[in-house]
């Protein structure tokens, strides 16, 4: 309406476009000149490789909320989902090492390279803190004939291939738990074939429905079904018993020297300055010592754990090596 001829119309579009671009460019330049004086001077982004509402996401969001409360930081949680966790972990590893993009790394990081999914491992990160560990457990139907884990292990040894186990995808955390348990008990891991499943919940259902015989997931995940008298835990792959499930013995008590589980922690890209890592560690440490955090972890059935940066680094290296050995032992790679 304002402009009558077609030419002036397109010209003015062009002018408006150019104007907007120039103004925006100027704004970005302006913001870049004033360099940030002290960490953190702007919002921090937590990258989570798993979808919103999952266990990792829930812990990350709680961590973010408590950091905002206790340290006054602004923390945004961003879910970068896909590729079985590779996409998020790749994004964390390749983020600018300025401490403003912080990764919530999970157990799967130890498997990507071995499984040939992505070239990312603990070597791409500088670990900050480990805040959660959930040991694997051996779960069977409540009416199963085996009295304890030794009877079950012997049964598997004598009847290879008869029983089936499940809990997660092939080469996933609970699968590796199974391999380690059998290997350390002197049984060929192939004697208990693995049926892939999309997670612990469908696998537990499958167990109740009679589709499989053993599920190796964490005890809290099976909690309601244990309470309902549908399934029972035979052993937990941890150094100590879980206080919420005092009747379930550890593998070590039964003479099988093996503990294993999934974990979650915080890490930053490899080239991040140590001073930033320290600030992050100290503040997150404060959070995980708080009563709110402990209550949250307890109620959700997440296992609490703590490792400082240097020990977390050693832990990651060992986990990576263990996983590689076990995947080879199972003939996966």
């Amino acid at each position: 309406m304002v402009f009558s001829s077609g030419i002036s119309k397109s010209m003015s579009i062009l002018i408006i476009v150019l104007l907007i671009v120039v103004v925006a460019g100027g704004l970005y330049y302006y913001t870049s000149v004033s360099a940030p004086p002290q960490y953190p001077s702007k919002p921090i982004t937590f990258i989570v490789s798993w979808s919103a509402g999952g266990g990792t996401d829930r812990t990350a969001r709680m961590l973010a909320a408590l950091l905002e409360n206790m340290s006054g930081w602004k923390v945004v949680v961003e879910n970068k989902v896909g590729g079985g966790g590779t996409i998020g972990h790749l994004a964390m590893a390749t983020a600018p090492p300025d401490g403003y993009t912080v990764g919530i790394i999970t157990f799967e990081l130890s498997t990507f390279e071995w499984m040939g999914l992505a070239n990312v491992s603990y070597k791409n990160f500088k670990p900050v803190i480990l805040y959660n560990k959930d040991p694997a457990a051996v779960i069977v139907r409540a009416d199963a004939p085996w009295k304890d884990i030794i009877e079950l292990t012997n049964y598997i040894k004598e009847n290879p291939g008869k029983l089936k186990a499940s809990g997660t995808a092939k080469g996933g955390v609970w699968d590796i738990g199974r391999i380690g348990w059998l290997k350390n008990a002197g049984v060929n891991p192939g004697a208990l074939p693995w049926v892939p499943s999309t997670g612990a919940a469908p696998c537990l259902q499958e167990l109740v429905a009679g589709g499989i015989d053993i599920c190796t997931c964490s005890l809290p995940e099976a909690g309601p079904l244990i309470e309902a008298g549908k399934v029972k835990g035979l052993a937990v792959m941890a150094d100590e018993r879980n206080p919420a499930f005092p009747d379930v013995p550890t593998l070590k008590e039964k003479g099988i020297n093996w503990s294993f589980g999934t974990w979650r922690g915080v890490a930053v890209p490899k080239d991040t300055p140590d001073s930033i890592v320290k600030i992050l560690h100290d503040n997150i440490r404060k959070v995980i010592n708080s009563s709110q955090w402990k209550e949250f972890m307890d109620k959700n059935g997440f296992g609490m754990a703590y490792l400082p940066s240097d020990e977390f680094a050693k832990f990651l290296e060992k986990d990576y090596r263990d996983v590689g050995e076990l995947l080879k032992a199972a003939g996966y790679i």
Binding site: G25, Y28, Y29, T31, S32, P96, D98
Partner: peptide
């Protein structure tokens, strides 16, 4: 976020 923006930021 604009690539342009993050580039200038670094």
């Amino acid at each position: 976020e604009p690539i342009l923006g993050t580039l200038v930021f670094r």
